[in-house]
Design a binder for these strands. Structure first.
Length: 281
DNA sequence: GGAAATGTTATTGT
DNA sequence: AACAATAACATTTC
């Protein structure tokens, strides 16, 4: 999925457009991606668009909710005459008339608008559950403290890290069940900001390094929200503004950082980590 | 042909 | 049992 700031931006764009509207029909082309009863959310007004961690939640007046997880390559596109909002993973194959080969679920809205869900890898899912049970159904994996919520404080980070002394720092801050929303890109960027190597063990970090990391996380998330919330430039709002966070990335997919240092790539927990061996100690 | 891709999630191992 | 490491998911691009 897009990472958290991106989901947040999609949420805002969607909330502006679909609250008050309702769904008249749903085309499900890949049944395994849809859980629950699609009929349960038809012809009932949309009253809210929320987010838990990286999960989008659309609440309906009849007490049902639609949960959408984008995973790595999901994309949600709102189309109405003269208004297009796109959010999610950008791919060349997505740049063609909708619906296309990778459009798996289509929501038809009463207000002559259409929501297209595209997903190249089909990792994402859509799930209809009752609103009161949404958080419970998502479970502990999604109960982490949201990085853009007031609960994400320096004290929280310190306490959490204390419980994980032997983990590499990058893997620790990517544990979604404790910290919701830091994905592979932002974790790497935050560590660059903090000048801490991603493979350092948590217990080797000094207090001031943890404080720098906390600031780095905040900075990177704020920057991303500011520049369109998109880790890639796939988001277009009604005014045609594109998200462009990656232009400001220091290490992710870069060969050099802004100081001209060569970026190294290593493997951590099955994911590629980018870092600068000169800046990060 | 091989590797990697923004993320979970299921399975296996300790 | 709890936790950590690994494979799996599906498809495209480099």
């Amino acid at each position: 999925m897009p990472e958290l700031p991106e989901v947040e931006i999609i949420r805002r764009g969607l909330a502006k457009r679909i609250i008050g509207d309702s769904i008249t029909a749903i085309d499900i082309k890949v049944p395994k991606m849809f859980r629950g009863d699609p009929k349960a959310i038809l012809h009932t007004p949309i009253i809210d668009v929320r987010r838990i961690a990286k999960v989008m939640i659309i609440d309906f007046a009849n007490g049902q909710s639609l949960l959408i997880h984008f995973k790595m390559t999901g994309q949600l596109i709102y189309v109405k005459a003269g208004d297009v909002a796109i959010g999610g993973h950008p791919e060349k194959v997505y740049e063609q008339p909708l619906p296309h080969k990778h459009t798996h679920i289509i929501y038809h809205l009463k207000d002559t608008a259409t929501l297209y869900y595209n997903d190249l890898r089909k990792f994402g899912w859509h799930w209809v559950v009752s609103t009161t049970k949404a958080a419970e159904m998502l479970g502990a994996e999604f109960a982490g403290v949201d990085v853009i919520s007031p609960g994400f404080t320096l004290t929280f980070l310190e306490n959490f890290l204390q419980s994980r002394p032997n983990r590499p720092i990058k893997e620790a801050i990517m544990e979604q069940r404790f910290i919701a929303g830091l994905g592979n890109i932002y974790a790497a960027e935050a560590l660059w900001q903090a000048k801490v190597r991603p493979d350092r063990k948590v217990k080797s970090l000094k207090d001031n390094e943890i404080a720098a990391l906390y600031k780095g996380i905040k900075h990177v998330i704020d920057l991303s929200l500011k520049y369109g919330g998109s880790s890639f430039n796939s988001y277009v709002d009604a005014a045609g503004k594109q998200g462009a966070f990656l232009k400001y990335a220091e290490v992710y997919k870069r060969s050099k950082d802004s100081l001209g240092h060569q970026i190294e790539r290593i493997k951590q927990g099955g994911r590629t980590t980018h870092f600068c061996p000169v800046c990060q100690k």
